[in-house]
């Protein structure tokens, strides 16, 4: 299925090929195609954001009873003794690290869309959401 923006891009591209390349019409069509492509990308982004927001809202529908349940968290490990925490860590990093960092970025953006003017402390809640998902689904990494 092709949407309206996709149809404009396709028609525009076909039209550009059918007229002389130095024509004002070509430039106009090229501009129209670029705008339509941008619009298409924005629409895809909007849809992706909405999916992330919906999932986050769903996660937040069940508040955590901190005093009465085990609360999952992630902890970054630093070896301050050897003083080589970063270089050494790089050798041992896995797909889990990249996935966790990426999920934190995306979910933090979503959190801000849902909670305007979110305070700094809310980042801990974002991490908690990610940890709940990870624990409930058996880990977001492929190896550790």
């Amino acid at each position: 299925m092709i949407n309206r923006r996709g149809a404009i891009v396709a028609m525009g591209a076909a039209a550009i090929g059918a007229v002389p390349s130095n024509s004002k019409l070509v430039r106009l069509l090229q501009w129209a195609v670029t705008q339509a492509e941008r619009g298409s990308h924005a629409a895809q982004t909007d849809a992706a954001d909405k999916a992330i927001d919906d999932r986050l809202r769903q996660d937040l529908a069940s508040p955590t009873a901190y005093s009465e349940e085990g609360v999952p968290v992630f902890l970054a490990c630093e070896d301050l003794v050897s003083g080589k925490n970063s270089p050494k860590a790089n050798a041992a990093l896995t797909a889990f690290n990249a996935t966790l960092a990426s999920e934190l970025r995306k979910t933090s953006e979503s959190w801000k869309r849902i909670h305007l003017n979110a305070p700094e402390g809310d980042v801990a809640k974002v991490i908690e959401v990610l940890a709940h998902r990870d624990f409930d689904h058996g880990g977001m990494e492929t190896q550790q």
């Binding site: 990093l93 889990f96 990249a98 966790l100 934190l104 809310d122 980042v123």
Partner: peptide
């Protein structure tokens, strides 16, 4: 919020991570 999220993203990206339940 953005600064903290960015700091923690970098922390988790660059250090081994272990799970805990409290």
């Amino acid at each position: 919020f953005d600064q903290r999220a960015s700091e923690l993203g970098q922390l988790f990206e660059s250090h081994p991570v272990i799970r805990a339940v409290n």
